[in-house]
């Protein structure tokens, strides 16, 4: 069973199962004629293939909730509503979308459960989040003693800032927590971190490039290997948090297109300001 971002979990009894293959005309027989190449499924292969379908569906419409609701507050037949408005100003806000292609294989996101994104970590910290505000790691729900934050160049200084705030919050929750920041050896990053040293006692900053992350058998801790100017060092953490590149949500991009606004104008992190389109404003802060 695989758990993927933004996907609900079903459990399956038949995974993995290869795609059934269709018959094809051999390559040698394709020259000098225009005969059909893809020959389609045989019947049993078709049925086998069809059985792979997960029959995706969320609410199954069984009505048990309605049967349980004394207030009769559920209406399965409710229809979508259309509203037409006419307004003088439009303010677009940015939200918390992240680019998910960033944590490449080498950071192990998706493979190692204790590697979380900054947005996931925000949920972990939040009282309203999945763990009721308890700082625990996603693999076994244990309280971490040592967390590594990886700030990548793609993430930029904005993402670093967000991570710093998370680190402060994490310290508030678990006093003895050790935190290390891994960031590119560049002034912008280091300055941003230095500004905050006082606020996060116990923080260490490691400059350089993260080479690889390995999961430790059993403990599921993460062994992080990084290099600075050729020196390679290894260190073990209970949990890793990745800074992700912020991204405009799809619906904002769509809206900007409709309004004829160049999306490069919509600067993430910027305060409220008017765009080149009169009457349309954009707030880039979270």
């Amino acid at each position: 069973m695989v758990e993927e971002r933004k996907r609900y979990i079903l459990e399956f009894t038949d995974i993995p199962k290869e795609r059934q293959s269709v018959n094809e005309l051999p390559v040698e027989q394709r020259i000098n004629n225009f005969n059909q190449v893809d020959l389609g499924f045989a019947e049993d292969a078709a049925v086998e293939e069809a059985r792979r379908c997960l029959s995706c569906r969320r609410c199954l419409g069984c009505g048990l909730c309605l049967a349980e609701c004394d207030k009769d507050a559920i209406d399965f037949g409710q229809a979508d509503e259309m509203l037409d408005l006419s307004v003088d100003f439009v303010i677009l806000t940015h939200g918390v979308e992240r680019v998910y292609t960033l944590p490449s294989e080498k950071f192990g996101y998706g493979r190692y459960v204790n590697v979380a994104t900054d947005i996931e970590f925000e949920r972990i910290l939040s009282d309203d989040g999945p763990y009721g505000g308890m700082l625990i790691r996603p693999f076994d729900g244990e309280i971490p003693a040592k967390i590594g934050f990886i700030c990548t160049e793609e993430g930029g200084v904005d993402a670093l800032n967000f991570a710093i705030h998370e680190a402060m919050m994490a310290k508030k929750k678990v006093d003895s927590l050790e935190i290390a920041f891994f960031c590119p050896d560049e002034d912008a990053y280091v300055k941003e971190l230095e500004r905050n040293y006082d606020n996060i006692p116990g923080i260490t900053v490691k400059r350089g490039v993260v080479k690889a992350i390995r999961e430790v058998q059993g403990s599921k801790n993460l062994c992080l290997e990084w290099s600075n100017k050729g020196d390679v060092t290894e260190e073990e953490f209970n949990m890793i948090v990745l800074s992700m590149r912020p991204q405009l949500p799809g619906y904002i991009v769509e809206l900007a297109k409709e309004l004829d606004i160049d999306i490069n104008e919509l600067e993430i992190g910027a305060l409220l300001k008017e765009t080149s389109k009169k009457g349309v404003f954009f707030a880039g802060t979270m």
């Binding site: 459990e11 997960l54 029959s55 569906r57 419409g61 009505g63």
Partner: peptide, 30 residues
Amino acid sequence: WVIGKKTEFMDQGNKYGERFTRHEIGRLLD
């Protein structure tokens, strides 16, 4: 409840009037 609805789901459909195939019922139950 769910098992009691199985026949209804396949013949008449669920609360939204969607009918289920046998395959889908199987997936769902699993």
